[in-house]
């Protein structure tokens, strides 16, 4: 298999995306106040976190050049773990 690294330009755009997503995380999580989060915001936090983790795996760690099976394994595992965490928080609000 050929493992070609992402170009500096691609890495820079990934960094920009990660910074924007972090701001999204802070806004969704009301980082400057103590108000409670709705189920929808909890779900948004989980999704943004999953996307950020995948960007780091696929570009910073170059997982995108690995086989499809490995990509699915990592994305599924993180999706399941984050899904369980978000479900626990949402169910806890009921």
């Amino acid at each position: 298999m050929k493992f070609t690294n992402p170009s500096p330009k691609t890495l820079f755009f990934c960094w920009l995306a990660l910074m924007a997503l972090t701001i999204g995380t802070m806004l969704s999580g009301h980082a400057t106040s103590d108000i409670a989060l709705s189920g929808l915001l909890i779900l948004a936090l989980g999704l943004i976190t999953w996307v950020k983790a995948m960007v780091i795996l696929r570009y910073y760690l170059n997982l995108r050049t690995a086989s499809r099976g490995w990509n699915r394994a990592f994305s599924s595992y993180l999706f399941v773990v984050l899904g369980i965490i978000m479900t626990i928080f949402i169910v806890g609000k009921l």
Binding site: L11, T22, T25, H30, T32
Partner: peptide, 26 residues
């Protein structure tokens, strides 16, 4: 919470620097 977010940005930027170091060495 805000400081935690800022620290996330610091670590993400550090990750970019590390990734660029690999490209530079290659």
């Amino acid at each position: 919470r805000f400081l935690g977010g800022v620290n996330t940005m610091v670590l993400i930027t550090s990750g970019l620097c590390a990734a660029l170091a690999v490209t530079a060495r290659q």
